[in-house]
Every structure is written in structure tokens, then in C-alpha cells.
Amino acid sequence: MAIKRRKFLFTSALSAILSVAVAACAGGGGTADSGARRLVMATSADYPPYQFVDSSGGTQEIVGFDIEIAQHITGELGYELEIQNIDFNSLIPALQANRADFVMAGMTPTEERQQNVDFSQIYYEARNTIVSRQGSGLTTPESLAGKSVGVQLGSTQEQAARDLEGLDIKPLNRINEMIQELKAGRIEAIIMEDTVAAGFLASNPDLEAHDIPNMGEAGSAIAFPRGSELREEFNPVLQEMIDSGMMDELVTKWFGDDSPAADELAN
């Protein structure tokens, strides 16, 4: 009898372990529904100060403005947070394929994107800027006609560039790739967000930037799969961060001249 009982207990324990393992390995987008308190956030960690890889401490930690917001919201709601770093143009497909529970990547809730995913309220708004080599004379949208212009693939800046006439548009996956192409002379200008440009200009004095009016939709919001209940959970915490002044504090921390992002880019 004792042998049979031990065999029964061992079998029951093994079944329980396997059940937990299966639940934990269920697709990224199903983490909340499976009962686990873990959410997967997808981002493109090449967009300082929103999110970037900090290697200053000998590690490859993803940090930034969006990361702190995500950490605060998930902490307040009792979730654990897992961050996945993928290309920007793969973020919305990741939500649609349930490989992520939400996306934060300085993403603007454009009309086209809203047809595929749901968005939180806007939590920050910046401006677009033209980045070029010093003395290029490329200071306005009109001056870009006939020029090769880099944009991040899938970004609102790509759409803004396509709305202008006569540009030779060069979409690239990563911001640092565009900076390298510009410095090598393979493109003549970049359209990017001013706050992101500021960090790169701090470590590249041979470049200059000129702000241009936002063309169309603007602002950053959190993206969710269509119909996700997380949006209704996240929005009140996001609003509380704005009302309490915490969002302003994070803006000052990450977008100021002495921000951690500026320090990282200067190294």
C-alpha cells in the first residue's frame, strides 16, 4: 500500500508541475488570460530616451521613459513585466499574433494603426525634426525635395515623409542605422522625433536639427490587441500619473539635457 501511495503522490506532483509549465509557456499574448500575473511588453529598444539598451553597467538592460511608465503601471496593477526587444515594424504584428500583451515604443495612435490594435490615451507628445549634416541647408520640408531621406520603417515619420513631394525615401529598421548612413553620406537627411534627435546630436556635433510642424497624427500611446481588457486597467493608472505630476517628473528625467539617455549616447 505504501508503495502504491508514493507512486500516486509522485504522479500527481508530476502532473501539477507539467500543468504549470504548460500554462507558463502559453503564447505571450495569453499571459493575463492564463491566470499568470505576467505581462509581455514588446518594444523596439533603439529609440532613446523612450527605450534603449543600457550597457554602461556591463549588462544589456533595456531602460528609458516608456520602460519606467510600464514598470509603474504593471507594478500598481500587480503584474510582473517581461520586455521583448523587436524591430519597430514587427510590434503590431506581435500584438495581432498574441506574442505580446501590449506595446510601448513611442508609438502614435494613427488612424491606420487603430484599425488593427487598440490604444490607451496619449501620454506624451513631441515634434518631428530634420536631422542633417552641419551646413547642409536642409531646414524645411520643402528643402528635402529631391534628397535621400532616412526614416524608421513603420513609423509616423515614414508616413510624414511619404506625404511630402519629391523625396527619395530610405526606410531603415533602426535609428542608429540611419545616423550611420547619414554620417557616411549615403543619405542626406533623416526625419525623426526631436527628443530622440537631441540625444544623438549630443554625441554627434557634426549633425544639426531643425524642427518641422507635425503633419497629421501625433503623440505617444500604449498599444493593445483589439478588445484587450488591459486598456481599461492601464488608462486610470496612466491618468493618475499625469494628474499627480509623476509624468512630468519622468519627462524631465528622461528628456532633459542631463538625462540618462543623453549620457548613454555620449559614451
Results as ranks from 00 to 15, higher is better:
R5F: 12
R6S: 15
L9W: 13
S12F: 08
A16Q: 04
A21G: 04
G30I: 08
S34I: 09
S34A: 12
V40C: 02
A42P: 06
Y47C: 02
P48E: 10
Y50D: 11
T59Y: 07
D66P: 01
D66E: 01
I73K: 05
T74E: 11
G75E: 11
E76M: 07
F88L: 02
A94K: 00
N98T: 09
N98R: 15
V103K: 10
A105P: 03
G106K: 06
G106C: 09
T108W: 05
T108D: 07
A126C: 14
N128T: 14
N128E: 14
T139P: 01
V151K: 04
Q152P: 00
G154V: 12
T156S: 10
E158Q: 13
A161S: 07
L164S: 02
I169C: 05
K170T: 10
R174Q: 13
L182I: 06
A184G: 10
A184H: 05
R186Q: 15
R186T: 15
I190V: 10
F200W: 08
A202L: 03
A202W: 08
P205M: 06
D211W: 04
D211K: 10
I212F: 01
N214L: 05
G219L: 08
G219R: 05
A221T: 09
A223I: 08
F224H: 06
G227E: 11
E233T: 06
P236K: 03
V237F: 03
E240H: 08
E240L: 06
M247G: 09
V251C: 11
F255C: 07
D257E: 14
D257R: 02
P260Y: 04
L265S: 05
L265D: 02
